[in-house]
């Protein structure tokens, strides 16, 4: 501490004007910082092959589909799917990633099924059962989310989701 340097009100000044070393350090930091945007790491885990994936509401991860409006998550490679028990006879499958800012619509937490539509809690995007964007967030635009074909047998609780492949 330099006790000789004091301001008019008696409080000491704790540091001197920047030295050349400090300026170079600051410039170095700025240069490093400016290069960082090029250092983006972007990996999404999972494979890309199209698949037909079976599910059964008797399985623990899908028991929510036993109830009307129940939702369950299903990952098919890189695709994140949201299964929704739309009515007694029908289970639908929608993309779980919101088209607005890519929030993951975790069932019952961020993705809410209400009024026969899907609401993303992040910024209140609303989608129809077919994946069409019904209401974008205020002041924003957005697009639809993908809907996937589903075959579902309510009597057995078994179903199949077709992701990247045609339904048979």
């Amino acid at each position: 501490m330099d006790q000789d340097r004091r301001r008019g009100d008696g409080l000491p000044v704790i540091d001197a004007p920047p030295t050349r070393r400090q300026l170079l350090c600051g410039l170095g930091c700025a240069v490093v910082a400016s290069q960082l945007p090029g250092c983006t790491i972007a990996e999404v885990f999972g494979d890309t092959a199209g698949q037909a994936v079976s599910f059964n509401v008797a399985d623990a991860e899908f028991t929510a589909l036993d109830d009307l409006n129940g939702m369950a998550a299903l990952d098919v490679g890189i695709r994140k799917i949201l299964l929704i028990r739309r009515n007694e006879a029908e289970v639908i499958a929608l993309d779980r990633i919101c088209s607005h800012l890519q929030c993951e619509m975790i069932p019952g937490v961020i993705g809410i099924w209400e009024n026969d539509g899907l609401r993303c809690v992040c910024h209140n995007s609303r989608f129809s059962a077919e994946g069409a964007l019904v209401a974008p967030p205020t002041g924003d635009t957005g697009g639809p989310i993908e809907a996937f074909a589903v075959e579902f047998d309510a009597s057995t609780g078994e179903g199949t989701v077709y992701v990247g492949v045609d339904a048979t």
């Binding site: 972007a42 999404v44 999972g46 890309t48 890519q102 929030c103």
Partner: peptide, 23 residues
């Protein structure tokens, strides 16, 4: 910042394409 999360799709050859949100 890059606002949003990563998403991925596959091209016709099955190659993974990762979409990175814009700054």
């Amino acid at each position: 910042a890059r606002l949003g999360q990563l998403t991925a799709t596959a091209d016709e050859s099955g190659e993974k394409i990762v979409q990175v949100p814009d700054y």
